[in-house]
Amino acid sequence: MRRAEPPPAAPHMLRVEGLVKTHRVDGGEVRAVRGVDLEVRPGEFVAVTGPSGAGKSTLLHLLGGLERPDQGRIWLDGQRVDQLSEARWAVLRRRGVGIVFQFFNLVSTLTVADNIELPALLAGRSPRQVRAARQELLAELGLTGKEDSTPADLSGGEQQRVALARALVNRPALLLADEPTGSLDSKGTREVLRLLTRCHERGQTILLVTHDAKVASAADRVISLFDGEVVDDITLDAAPYPSRPSRAAADVVKLQG
């Protein structure tokens, strides 16, 4: 719906022009991102896929302000951000952009509850609101009861979900996530997908990098990155859940007697 009729002058949630990033490693150069143009409208759920080394994580780091582009420009919600100082980025990440990286960057000395609540308290919300938001997120992610654990007590999959909860606690307009299900089993993946879908339904914009096709297929739009360039940009079927799907699982696995 949102995609079909964008308001005429609506700013893009995210706009990228001619993005280039080259990493220098061991005296050599790796052109990680080689001229990416991208537009994401408010409310879109976009997955970026591609083989490892295609530049997916670098692209996400550029979009989240963790790395600076060599060339190109980035606008977040109409604001030019590629030249912002680290301090300005920190504010942006607290207010409008939630980010989950492959390395979860949880504060090891804080409890799970404090890790999640911290960004919301820094943003000036009331402790009561913040506690309610934290409890809701933990419940949605199947982590109720882990409030008082520290990150070291958690499995990789649990830490990953805590990082996601932290990124979502301020209900950011844009969520950027790098392999948000990378350490999860299928149950954990399902919980994360359910939460992301709910965020999407609430109108939050999501851009995630994933190698998991199940995760990619939950998005409305899938961008394929290859060798630092966008090679395909597709919109997936939006048909509502069919009561009797024509393509059943058995067609795919060729189940027959």
Partner: peptide, 19 residues
Amino acid sequence: NKQRRHYLNLMRAMSRLAA
């Protein structure tokens, strides 16, 4: 690319089926 699109749409249908 065409084949990928087809598989991703099938995958989406599978997720709906599972749900």
